[in-house]
């Protein structure tokens, strides 16, 4: 049971990271390796600002907004100018950006493992057994709220529809008078902000170190592939599934293999069914943007 709860928590953290990653993949059609480093950036900015303000929640919120803003800045300054040069150039530019962010964070903060100064909490007891801490509950709630509100945003609001229009067909959207740059900036703000949240939550349940971004990007990739490239709902579902299988898998396999389970899942999924979950569960399919994904 403990593992199950923790699996949901891990899954929620992956969800926040993976949905953002998948949004940037849909909107700009390349694998943004630097997304992992946005988690790192968010986690360290929260550390810095919570020390500065003396309030962890406030520091975390500042960090989320700042990371979102930096995401927009990176997009406008780094990716946008080379957008026409093809996905491989964009991919390796994002590797360069990853090195850059990682290096700056490391130079400023040093390489030691750090933790947030938040009070230790007891697990809430349900029927006499300790089940979940208030932190873990917060993480799950935030993930659920974001999943639902993103769904509403994309399905119901005008801005959400415009973003999807640009992702579907960039040129057609422009001809119809939609400014693609503005939509892309919204996407990068939301995606990077969510990455920051994911990084901060990771720090809350364990600790933060410089390798956080590199470790997490692979798990995010697994969730994205398992969900099926291009399907936001598939990715949400896949994130929870991967979180659960990582935490439940260690009941069977030695616990050192925790993250290997996630990677083994990608390998198996890609070999058996490269389209991911969305090919199995039709409801996850969403709008057909796959035509673009094929060319990646």
């Amino acid at each position: 049971m403990e593992n199950f709860v923790f699996g949901i928590v891990t899954g929620s953290i992956i969800l926040l990271g993976a949905v953002g990653f998948s949004m940037t993949l849909n909107s700009d059609h390349f694998v943004n390796v630097a997304h992992g480093q946005m988690l790192l950036l968010g986690a360290y900015l929260a550390l810095y600002f919570s020390k500065l303000t003396g309030n962890f929640a406030l520091g975390a919120i500042i960090s989320v907004i700042m990371t979102g803003a930096l995401g927009m800045l990176f997009y406008a300054a780094v990716y946008r100018p080379i957008k026409t040069k093809g996905p491989l150039i964009l991919l390796f530019t994002s590797v360069g950006l990853s090195y850059f962010i990682w290096g700056i964070v490391g130079a400023v903060s040093g390489s030691q493992t750090q933790a947030y100064e938040i009070p230790a909490v007891r697990a809430i007891r349900v029927f006499g057994t300790p089940l979940i801490t208030s932190y873990e509950l917060t993480i799950i709630l935030v993930a659920v709220i974001f999943a639902v509100s993103l769904h509403l945003f994309f399905a119901k609001t005008r801005q959400g529809k415009l973003i999807r229009a640009v992702a579907d067909n960039h040129d057609l959207a422009r001809i119809r008078g939609i400014n693609p740059l503005r939509r892309a900036l919204y996407v990068w703000f939301i995606a990077s902000g969510m990455a920051a949240m994911s990084g901060i939550f990771l720090g809350m349940i364990s600790s933060i170190d410089l390798e956080l971004g590199w470790k997490q990007i692979l798990i995010i990739l697994s969730a994205t592939v398992l969900g099926g490239l291009g399907s936001t709902y598939g990715v949400m579902f896949a994130a929870i599934l991967i979180g659960l299988s990582m935490e439940l898998g260690i009941l069977i396999l030695p616990s050192h293999y925790r993250s290997a389970i996630a990677f083994a899942i990608i390998i198996i999924v890609l070999l058996v069914r490269p389209e991911g979950l969305k090919s199995v569960v039709p409801a996850l399919r969403g709008r057909p943007v796959e035509s673009d994904m094929e060319s990646l």
């Binding site: 780094v78 530019t93 360069g96 090195y99 990682w102 290096g103 490391g106 130079a107």
Partner: peptide, 21 residues
């Protein structure tokens, strides 16, 4: 030295981005 090592990686990142651009 640890910090300098990190900064070096940042410089390599910048070089990579600049070359690609």
């Amino acid at each position: 030295a640890v910090r300098v090592a990190s900064a070096r990686v940042a410089v390599i990142g910048l070089i990579l981005m600049a070359v690609l651009r």
